[in-house]
Structure formats: structure tokens, C-alpha cells
Nucleic acid binder design. Structure first.
Lengths: 149, 149
DNA sequence: GTCCCTGCAAAGCATTTGCAGGGTA
DNA sequence: TACCCTGCAAATGCTTTGCAGGGAC
């Protein structure tokens, strides 16, 4: 009786065949990012992995994040708050509204942005990375408070 | 014979009346930013001022940039390349297409973006800071090269 | 043996902060 | 006197890098 292929094991096998190794550290980092359905910082990833594998070093986390980025398994998000955020490439494409006053980050879906990206491509021949569009401004509440002041 | 008010001197007078001082350092920083019709980094500003006033410290530049931001005399631009860029608030509103491959930054006018900002405001009640919308992606040339590879 | 990968420690780098002193009102 | 502002030096905080060692193939 033949089993259907297991997608995660398949992906792992492909990585192995390209000469990469799936060390415990690397597997744990990948798992943390995939289970956490939101953007997560390198330090948070490190803390989460340490809980299960105490000797992992933060440098290993950073190195693997760049490796995962090269493999297109994660996306890198810069919201300009001093650290980078990361999320699994399997998450639905979405965007971030970053309030410059209260620093809140709100995720929005791709609808409006996709339309905008098309316009930029048409007018300027620039291929917008719609997986990474940080939108700065003021959230509803802060905009109201600024007006009041 | 009455002279028309001098706009820059007026602005300076207003700042003085609010209790601020217009030190040589501060004036030079403001001048460098206003004369340089593009975004400029803190370090570039420092270098430009040093040429005329050798003892100014980089900390003074940073402190004054934040002060100028408070006074809404400059805009701060984060293109995610490790430093912040600054430009005079008198520059026409425009935006930056940042190529994630060759790091080139291309300025584009406000037309397409203003339209997009309206949509975000309508849908999410979020007031996009259209003076600060870094648009990441691939420039025409790099997109072509990526396709070829 | 070769190459990938890790831990550790140190370095990098833009930016910020503490502190003492100087200048202006 | 009070307050603004500066220079200097040190600190900050995230991220990167050099190096030696360990393990897989």
C-alpha cells in the first residue's frame, strides 16, 4: 500500500539533496516560524528554541534566517522599529500598517496593495515586492488624538 | 519704503520666539539639508557641516535632526538600508522605489501613491504618511536579470 | 578529506545618552 | 539664575563575522 508523499518530508529531502543539512537547530527554527502565525523577531525565535534546545546561539538563529530567506522559506519584514521581523513564506500575503505614534502594527490583506503594485509596475516598470510593503502613518486613534491636540 | 517679510528670517524669528536658539551648528545643518535637493544621511550632513565648522559633533547632528523633525522642518525616510535618510520638508512629496537586489533608490512622484493612500484611509481608517512610503522590490533591470537566471 | 554547520566571543555600525561646561536671556 | 545647547565619551542594541571544533558524507 503506497503512501501519498508527505509535503514537509519532501521539502526536507529536497534541501538535503541540494547539499544542506537539517540540523536540530535548523529544524527547530523552521518549526517555530511555521507554528507562529505572525511575524516574529530573531530574539523571539531564539527564546522559543532555547526552551527546547538550551545551547543554541543567537548567531545560529541569524545565520539560519538568512539561509531560510535564500531558500525562500521565510519572508523578511522591516517595519523600521530597529529589528527585523520574519514570517513563514507559507503565510498569506499581507501588509503592515505601522503607526508612527503608538508603534502599533496592524496587518491588512493584499487587496488594495496588489492594485497599487500593478500601477507602479505599469508606470515605472518596477516589480513591487508585495510581500514587504511597510506602510507608515497614523492609526485611527492616534490620528484623532493628533487632531485634538 | 516697506520691505516684504523675508520668509526664512520669519521662520527663524518664530523658532526664537518659541524659546529655541539658532546656533551656528543648527543653522548649518538646516542649510545643508535645504540646499541638498535629495535625501541625505546624518553622516553626510555631518561631513558637509564639518567642511565649514570643523568641531561639530555627530551627536549634535542627530539631536538637531530630531529637533527639526519635531518642528516639521524635515522628513525622515527609512528605506531599510541601515541608516535613516532625511530631506527638507519643503521638497515636493515623492516616494522611493528601493531595489532589493542592486540597492538603487529611485524617486517617483506622488500621483499613484496618493490614490493608494486614499484607498487605505477609506478601507482601514489609517492615515498613510505619504511622505514616508518606502516601496521595496526589483528595478526593471534587476527583474530582467532575475528572470534570465 | 571535504564541506557544512555550530558555539563562542568579538566586532560593527548607526544611533542615543549621561555629563559637564558654555552661552544667552 | 534658568534654560538651551554643545562636545565628548561611553553605552546601546541589533546584527554580523572570525575562528576553531564537530559531525555528515
Amino acid at each position: 500500500m503506497q503512501q501519498p508523499p508527505h509535503p514537509i518530508q519532501d521539502a526536507h529531502e529536497q534541501l538535503r539533496q541540494r547539499g544542506f543539512r537539517l540540523t536540530p537547530q535548523r529544524m527547530l527554527i523552521m518549526e517555530v516560524i511555521n507554528v507562529f502565525h505572525d511575524h516574529i523577531s530573531a530574539e523571539q525565535i531564539h527564546a522559543a528554541v532555547v526552551a527546547r534546545y538550551p545551547y543554541i546561539n543567537i548567531a545560529t538563529v541569524y545565520r539560519n534566517l538568512h539561509w531560510l530567506l535564500d531558500q525562500q522559506l521565510v519572508r523578511k519584514i522591516d517595519v523600521g522599529d530597529g529589528h527585523l521581523w520574519w514570517e513563514a513564506a507559507t503565510e498569506a500575503v499581507h501588509h503592515h500598517l505601522i503607526c508612527e505614534r503608538c508603534k502599533a502594527v496592524q496587518a491588512i490583506d493584499n487587496h488594495v496593495v496588489a492594485c497599487f503594485a500593478n500601477h507602479v509596475a505599469e508606470h515605472y516598470g518596477f516589480a513591487v515586492n508585495i510581500a514587504h510593503l511597510p506602510i507608515f502613518g497614523l492609526c485611527t486613534q492616534c490620528a484623532a488624538e493628533e487632531d485634538a491636540a
